[in-house]
Amino acid sequence: MNDWLERLSQLPQQWFDSPIAAIALTLGAYFFGIRLFKLMHRPTWCPPMLIAAILIAVTIALLPIGIDDYNRGAGWLMLLLGPATVALAVPLYQQLPQIRALWKPILLTLPLSATLAACYAVIIAAAMGAPKEVLASLAPKSVTSPIALGLAEELGGSRALLMGALLTTGVTAIFGVEWLSRVLHIRDPRLIGLALGINGHALGTVRAFEISSAAGAFASLGMSLTGAFTAVVLPLVWHLFY
């Protein structure tokens, strides 16, 4: 009997020795998050991702495993981030005629929007006395995660704080775009998509695809251009100040 209990207590550790358990936990939490999100009548302030992340955190805290065990396994899932980014070529190509017709205004407004997205947050945090490490983790907050992770590393920020900042930013951007576009009477899906992609990175882009495929394509465009622009400019500007 004791033998059995002994073996049972070692099971979580054994499960998390291979990436399977972490991947299963992530997928399970994701679908549970979506279900709970629907049961809660789709609150904009609490997306399924947040519910799922809390659920995973609670599970890890309850089981005799550490966050490192989970991260090691979940890293395998995050490998898909690369191919998923390449897959954005499909909506981008589909909207190419639209984008080609608008390249001038997009090129004029996007760099400014992307700069403002980073500046506001950094200025507010700096004014409230946040140290350099926190500022470095907040600066790439509107950039899609594969780019943002590289940027935070280069600027000396915290990876965990950046991911939290990405989630908060994505949620706020989705809420903000839907609320402010109603206030401003903006209904053009291209504009809403661009705003979602520039400010809300992948989360905003996924939301834009739910609105319409045109909004989604403009969001992927906004997201990739913001990412490319910020990746080049942010390190240069940052090293001017620090």
């Binding site: 972490a22 992530t26 997928l27 939490a29 994701y30 997306p47 399924p48 991702m49 947040l50 799922a52 992340a53 995973i56 955190a57 890890i60 966050i67 989970y70 991260n71 979940a74 890293g75 899932l77 995050m78 898909l80 981030l81 998923a84 995660s145 992770l149 990876r159 965990a160 704080l161 991911m163 939290g164 990405l166 989630l167 992948a202 989360l203 882009t205 996924v206």
Partner: peptide, 12 residues
């Protein structure tokens, strides 16, 4: 894509 950034969020 949204699912893929979630594991990183947990660490916070």
């Amino acid at each position: 894509l949204a699912l893929l950034i979630m594991p990183g969020v947990v660490e916070i």
